[in-house]
């Protein structure tokens, strides 16, 4: 039986985490192809709807990643993102979504290595968890 390969939708901020992903690439670091990157200008522009829709459409995990606190290109977008993720992390588990399926991280532009490690780790966690219920069941 082939190993389950999760799908992770990743919202990366243009200035830090997306740049880190770029750096990971140019540094020839590998990260799992389970991750589908959506570049956004700021983690603070990730509408909770995007996360909800991705999870309901069958993404096994969603990761939002931005600049470290204090480093936001737009001053405080990442703090706003943190409150929104906090909100979603209170709502979604009530409907059975495991906490591993939604992650928020800060990855600086220079941290290609950290990005590669985090993606590896998250993929392994989701592999262990198995496919999301939304992928297996009919969701109206």
């Amino acid at each position: 039986m082939s190993e389950f390969e999760p799908t992770i939708v990743a919202f990366f901020c243009n200035w830090c985490t997306y740049t880190a992903a770029d750096l990971a690439g140019t540094s020839r670091l590998s990260y799992p192809h389970s991750i589908k990157i959506v570049r956004v200008m700021c983690s603070g522009m990730v509408d909770p709807k995007y996360v909800i829709k991705a999870l309901l459409e069958g993404a096994d995990g969603v990761i939002v990643s931005g600049c470290n606190p204090g480093d936001c290109h737009y001053i405080n977008g990442n703090y706003k993102a943190r409150r929104r993720i906090k909100l979603l992390k209170e709502i979604l588990p009530q409907f059975g979504f495991e906490p591993e399926r939604l992650r928020l991280t800060w990855i600086a532009a220079s941290d290609g290595l950290l990005l590669s490690e985090i993606m590896q780790e998250m993929t392994e966690q989701l592999r262990a968890l198995g496919p999301s219920e939304a992928r297996l069941k009919m969701v109206i």
Partner: peptide, 29 residues
């Protein structure tokens, strides 16, 4: 968010504000 809807005009809606040092537990994997 230690908030109760309608409790007071002085409490800001949770998503209308943030603090720099809060909710560390939602960050990381």
């Amino acid at each position: 968010f230690d908030y109760r809807a309608g409790r007071s005009l002085d409490d800001k809606p949770p998503l209308a504000e943030f603090k720099e040092d809060e909710f560390q537990e939602v960050v990381g994997i």
